[in-house]
């Protein structure tokens, strides 16, 4: 019998790593850690730090004197309006997409054959992943004067309804594409799939026995829906709302292309850092969505959103 040959260097390294799992772990983690730690977290912290710098309105320059003035300025009426406008839109979009998503998710989860479920699944995934900017573009085509929606409205003799909707204060405007209603539709459309999938996942996990028990105990389907299914679907809705809420809060492309003039949080950040050149104020503004989202996350966490993600 020949003696076992000496281990190759590669083999020796492999054994060494196997015996030192912590070192091996560190080795695996170093590249992603460096990447995220330096590039991402570093940039993020440095951005937030700039929120404390001073911007001189007269010379239009930034000095490194530390101040809290930028954060105080957030509560000026004009800026406060921007925050409320964006927050209101984010909440409206979240509520409406939950309303639209629920029947789709319910049908997918509980009323379909496996085959049909796959069709619906792809049917939701494709629009979710299709190019964001192209979807917004499609909506500018849909909403424009002589566009598709106006054509359908006149075909169905509903011009009066559209005009009446546009007369309403708050959501109205001159045309669909310059109204808050139009902007709201675009936002809802773009984030809707993010709401459908988590609700579907939660509903699918509902044990049929729960529904049977409810029916056996004499509940009508309506009662079962209201008192059994809806409460159990709350974690899914909460999980989906994380996306619809935070994505609407930070968006600045849709407000720029559809809807009435007036800043959104995202467009304000963009304007501050670009055209105005006030980086400290832009940095202060980025803190608003971060804080709002953190607050929102702590609320939905209690509703079980993280278990449904």
């Amino acid at each position: 019998m020949t003696p076992p040959s000496a281990p190759t260097p590669m083999r020796r390294i492999a054994s060494m790593l196997y015996r030192r799992p912590n070192f091996y772990l560190l080795l695996l983690l170093t590249p992603p850690l460096l990447w995220f730690g330096i590039i991402y977290i570093g940039s993020l912290l440095s951005l937030l730090w700039q929120g404390f710098y001073t911007f001189d309105d007269f010379t239009m320059t930034v000095s490194t004197d530390l101040t809290l003035q930028n954060f105080v300025n957030l509560f000026q009426p004009a800026n406060y309006d921007i925050i409320l406008r964006t927050l209101g839109m984010a909440i409206a979009v979240t509520l409406f997409s939950a309303l639209l998503a629920f029947p789709v998710a319910y049908y997918m989860a509980r009323c379909c054959s496996e085959r049909m479920k796959a069709v619906f699944y792809i049917g939701v995934m494709l629009p979710m992943w299709a190019s964001y900017i192209v979807k917004v573009y499609a909506w500018t085509l849909l909403l424009s004067k002589d566009g598709v929606l106006y054509w359908f409205a006149s075909l169905l003799h509903l011009d009066g309804v559209v005009d009446a909707l546009l007369q309403l204060p708050g959501i109205g405007g001159k045309t669909l594409s310059t109204s808050n209603l139009g902007r709201f539709l675009v936002f809802t459309y773009i984030w809707l799939p993010f709401m459908i999938l988590p609700i579907q996942a939660v509903l699918e996990r509902l044990p049929p026995s729960v529904l049977q028990a409810s029916a056996d105990l004499g509940a009508t389907p309506r009662q079962t829906l209201l008192h059994v299914i809806l409460p159990l679907a709350v974690p899914g809705v909460a999980a989906g709302s994380i996306f619809t809420f935070s994505l609407t809060l930070g968006d600045y492309i849709v407000p720029q292309l559809v809807g009435p003039p007036g800043y959104f949080l995202g467009s304000m950040v963009y304007a501050q850092q670009g055209a105005i050149g006030n980086m400290p104020m832009a940095a202060a503004f980025t803190l608003v969505p971060i804080v709002l989202i953190a607050v929102y996350l702590s609320i939905v966490k209690r509703m079980g959103a993280f278990d449904a993600l």
């Binding site: 977290i41 993020l44 850092q273 940095a283 969505p289």
Partner: peptide, 25 residues
């Protein structure tokens, strides 16, 4: 926290990620 760190760039609004990176560069 490591998992959170990986999710953050996609969970926070793109405008924050974008501005932070621009600033860092």
């Amino acid at each position: 926290s490591l998992t959170l760190m990986m999710v953050l760039p996609i969970a926070l609004p793109g405008i924050i990620t974008g501005l932070a990176l621009l600033n860092g560069f």
